[in-house]
Amino acid sequence: MKVGKALVYLFLGILFGIILSKSEAISWFRIQEMFRFESFHMYGLIGSAVATGVLCIQVIKRFKVKDIEGNPIVIADKQKGVWRYLLGGTSFGMGWALVGGCTAPMFILIGYGEYSMAIILFFALFGTFIYGKYKHLLPH
């Protein structure tokens, strides 16, 4: 990877972290409010992210946008099935509710000095490793 591309990715990652921090998306209290249905704040953030994603995907598809290296962006169709998304979403949501954060906030909170999140990050990476190791044995 060229240095210029790495700097672009680094800048975008820092910008994303600042946006999540300033919008309070990394706040354990905001996440708990969401899961207790006490506040619309996180639902509004998630809804705006979904709307932005839908808009961006439509732009990519309609205008045949290319990636940073000039290759066409190919978006594969999603596999159909209720159970895979129901079980995956439920397990993700339970972990999110218990921990008070998902992937990006883990890194941001470690940067803020919440070093206990490093334990959670370790087990998230460990779980990803185990899934990759045994993926071929699981129904897909």
Rank of each mutant, 00 (worst) to 15 (best):
M1A: 04
M1P: 03
G4Y: 10
A6V: 01
L7C: 02
L10E: 03
L10D: 02
L10I: 09
F11Q: 11
L12A: 14
I14K: 07
L15F: 04
I18D: 09
K22Q: 11
K22L: 08
S23A: 02
A25Q: 01
I26D: 02
S27P: 08
Q32T: 06
E33A: 07
M34F: 10
M34Q: 00
R36H: 14
F37G: 06
F37E: 04
E38R: 15
E38N: 14
H41L: 01
M42A: 12
M42W: 14
M42Q: 13
Y43R: 12
Y43P: 07
G44I: 15
L45I: 13
L45N: 12
L45S: 05
L45A: 09
I46W: 02
G47P: 07
S48K: 04
V50S: 10
V50M: 07
V50W: 10
G53F: 11
V54H: 10
V54N: 01
C56K: 15
C56M: 15
I57F: 07
Q58L: 15
R62H: 01
R62Q: 01
V65W: 06
K66V: 15
I68H: 04
I68T: 01
I68S: 07
P72M: 06
I73Y: 05
I75S: 01
D77M: 14
Q79Y: 03
K80C: 01
K80M: 00
G81P: 02
V82G: 09
V82L: 12
R84D: 05
Y85L: 10
Y85C: 08
L87P: 03
T90A: 15
S91V: 14
S91M: 13
F92K: 14
M94N: 13
M94S: 11
G95Y: 05
W96Q: 04
A97W: 15
L98E: 13
L98S: 12
G101P: 07
G101C: 05
C102P: 10
T103I: 10
T103C: 10
T103P: 02
L109Q: 15
I110Q: 02
G111T: 06
G111M: 11
G111Y: 07
G111K: 02
Y112M: 06
Y112L: 03
E114I: 05
E114D: 04
E114H: 14
M117I: 04
M117Y: 06
I119L: 08
F122N: 05
F123N: 00
A124C: 09
L125T: 02
F126G: 07
G127Y: 03
G127C: 04
G127I: 08
K133P: 05
H136C: 11
H136N: 14
L137Y: 03
H140V: 06
H140Q: 09
H140C: 01
